[in-house]
Every structure is written in structure tokens, then in C-alpha cells.
Design a protein around this nucleic acid. Structure first.
Lengths: 156, 156
DNA sequence: CCTGAAAAGCCCTCACG
DNA sequence: CGTGAGGGCTTTTCAGG
């Protein structure tokens, strides 16, 4: 089972290890060890501890959407009819591959989603043919990201 | 309708390799090779090709913010005075570690940001003591994410 | 574009300070 | 916590089909 957040003690060396791997998940343990100045075995032990603590959610290759021709990112606020339950809307949104994030939010909308499309025309199709077709979706508000200027993880 | 730019040719095997690594960046080349059914050397060559094509933006360890006590995520729409330039606002936002994303958007706001805070009180402090203090920020609208139900990358 | 082989390097465990 | 040593696996390169 998971350990509780309270018995999680990460020191400066743990933080250094994490900072290296958050930038490059494929960096070798020995290279990190040489950078920090302790043995590979020590890094290995600390990593196992960090993994079993639940702090590490996994690792990912990040692919560059622009290289695949996906250049239009947008946020869409969705109003749902009162009769429409959030879970069944999410189930439909999951089927749309262009939907990368979905948040159940406070405020005007029921749902806020992030979509990634090839271009504005593609975005329009996703809006008209996919999102607006979902039962219970009454209205949407779209905000196109002209430029993403910050993209990072939590600072450790 | 083309889905990829012309100079980039990725076939089914490339896609399989990427799908494995997008899920787990530390999966070994040989393990991928065994799954796909070709030699490790072939996977290695294809990975080098994919890296030099610009398709791969990097790799990341994903850490679990909840394990660090960060449980409140929110989106904040920011209105800027006309006199305030976007780049100088972004420069200030970069200094706030709780700001994870920053988008220059069409629509009502000048800027849409994503923040991650420990709790609602921390969010309030970030709003009052950091964001509202930035020169040129006239008004903000905050949407707390009660639950993030989808979080994924582009489908390959 | 693939392969298998071979050298170099890394992962992981262990016994111990 | 830390270490260094060692067996086994991986990475990386290369000549060849």
C-alpha cells in the first residue's frame, strides 16, 4: 500500500536526483552519481525509496506536437445541462483523441478541457462534430493558445 | 489531408516504439525490441533517427504533486492593462514557481495560466501577493480544478 | 533497413563500514 | 547512509545481407 505523505522525508540529495530525472528521465544512475558525487549504489537505493514512497508517478517521453503538424492548442470551457452528469460527459470526451486534459471546475463552466489540433479548421471540426454533439453540452467557449510561454512541473 | 509534415516519415514500428516510451521513458531498448519482435540494434537506430528528427522533445520523470502536499490546481484568466506588454508580464509570472503553464490566448483574457498550490489558502496568497502585484494586471478570474479526469499526450 | 556479435558500460545486489 | 566489487544485462557500434 501507499505510504502516507507524513513519513516522506526527502533531503537535498533526493531533490538533486529528482531534478536531474525530471529534466531527462533516461539519464543513467551512474551519470547522476558522478554529478552529485556519491556512489551509484547510493543513488539506486534512494531511487527505490522514492519510487515506493509514491512520489514518482512515472516517466514519459515528451513528443513535439509541432513536428507532427499539430500547431493549434486551445482551452474550451463547456456548459453542461443540469440533467447531464459530469462522468458521462467525461466518458465521451475520452473518446476524442484531441482532448488532452479535462478538468471538473468551479466557476462558470462545468468542464474545462485542453485540446490539440492540427490547425484552426481541425479545431472547428472537433468542436462541431465531436464536442457539440455530446448530449448535455449546451454551449462552449473557446480560447486559442497563440503561444505557450511557460510549461514546467512543480519545483522541488 | 496530410497529418504529418513531408520530411518526417514515421512508420508503424516507430509509432510502437514511441508509444512504449511515452508511457515509460525508462523502458529498456531491448525490452521494447522483444515486445515488437525486431533486434535491439534496429530499435536503437530508429530512436536515433527519431531524436534527430526533432519529434522527441525530451523525457521527464513525472512526480506526484499530492505526495508533496500540493492538492489545489487552478486556472487563472488574467486581464492586462493595454499599456502592459505580454512579455514583461510573462517574465514576472516565470518567477512564481506555482505557475506551471502560461498561455497567450485569444478571447476575454490576455493570459491564461495554470497554477498548482498546496491548498486554497496558498492559492489565495499566490493570487494576492504574487499575481495581483504584477504591474499591469488589472483583474483575474480563477477556476479551481476540483478533479482532473483526463491527462494525456497526443495520440500517435 | 535489418541482423548478430562483441566491447564497453550500466544496473542491481550484496556484505560490510 | 554510505561504499566497492561482481555477475548479468543493456547499450552502442559495426560489418555484412
Amino acid at each position: 500500500m501507499k505510504s502516507t505523505p507524513d513519513n516522506l522525508k526527502i533531503d537535498g540529495i533526493d531533490k538533486e536526483i529528482l531534478r536531474f530525472l525530471m529534466k531527462d528521465a533516461r539519464k543513467s544512475i551512474l551519470e547522476i552519481a558522478r554529478n552529485i558525487g556519491i556512489s551509484g549504489a547510493a543513488i539506486h537505493q534512494r531511487l527505490r525509496k522514492l519510487e515506493s514512497s509514491g512520489l514518482i508517478a512515472g516517466s514519459k517521453f515528451v513528443i513535439n506536437p509541432k513536428a507532427l503538424g499539430y500547431t493549434t492548442m486551445a482551452y474550451i470551457g463547456i456548459y453542461l445541462d443540469k440533467a447531464m452528469s459530469n462522468p458521462s460527459a467525461v466518458k465521451e470526451l475520452e473518446k476524442i483523441p484531441e482532448v488532452l486534459e479535462c478538468h471538473y471546475t468551479t466557476g462558470n463552466w462545468s468542464i474545462l478541457i485542453k485540446v490539440l489540433c492540427r490547425d484552426n479548421e481541425h479545431l472547428m471540426q472537433v468542436l462541431n462534430k465531436n464536442i457539440q454533439q455530446i448530449e448535455g453540452v449546451s454551449r462552449t467557449e473557446t480560447f486559442i493558445s497563440l503561444d505557450q510561454q511557460i510549461d514546467r512541473q512543480i519545483t522541488i
